[in-house]
Amino acid sequence: MNSHPLNEWITPEIQDRNERILKRPPVLDIQQLHKSFEHKGKQIEVLRNVDFTAYKREFICVVGPSGCGKSTLARLIAGLETIDDGSILMDGKKVTSPGPDRGMVFQSYSLFPWMTVKENVMFGLIESGMSKTTAEPEALQWIDLVGLEKFTESYPHQLSGGMKQRVAIIRALANQPKVLLMDEPFAALDPKNRLKMQQYLLEIWQNIDITIFFITHDLDEAIYLADRILVLDAHPGRVKEVVNVPLPRPRANDTFLSPAFMGTKAYLESLVHHEEEEPEDMEDKLKMVRMVSVNSDVPDIF
């Protein structure tokens, strides 16, 4: 263990925290998971032999090259895809179908466009058998929490992207799921909004009993948010490594500039981009672009 390149930043407090997390009861247990898709009669293996355990109130980020099966993994946990082989256990029970114990926030905005913000947040509450009169104040509380009081009666199309994702998050959280699955929820936001949303999310996560399983391809985001980062390998998707993030909680504002952060990022980059995807091919294409003559009024400055 001492040989691990990130160990130099693991302070005793961080070490202690990590050890405490691993002693908590597991919530989500992924065992020997396999998944293939059939495409034009051929089987494409997407996930092979994935083993992973998430503990109570842990924040997990999943990174990996595009197409390595991150979304598929989240959808399997959510019960939106069928498991080929292996199993996913939620609190010891096998996952077979979607259920309110696993909330999900999608990358594309998935708010119900015909419902106001309030109705969207109330949706899951009512589905779980709550009456309208008790669901409403509860929903309003959640809306307050993310600062959208003014938009309670607005329709989703009247909100900005960041606001929509905030509503999507509280809609999932209002149901009090044990695990919140998030598939690149902030990918469509601009950097400033994204940081704000990340802070919101950490704030909420610290105050409620929930395990977050967060998929991203943004390494900064993963390091900033996660306790542990699950790094997947592509073709087929396998667990490459589970990285402990060597940063103290709560995250400092300048944590992005700390050596520990940058060291972790460099290390993750080496894991994720160890095999560049056909670099020569790209070079060829660029050459072709250069050969295309362009009618230009100004002389080339290169």
Partner: peptide, 28 residues
């Protein structure tokens, strides 16, 4: 949008109830 159906599934809504609460208003 299939995401709406999937979102409702993860929120604990399924079967005919899902059709009434999500599919029907969604396509109305």
């Amino acid at each position: 949008n299939i995401a709406l159906v999937e979102a409702s599934l993860t929120l604990g809504c399924k079967g005919l109830r899902m059709i009434r609460r999500v599919v029907l208003p969604g396509i109305l």
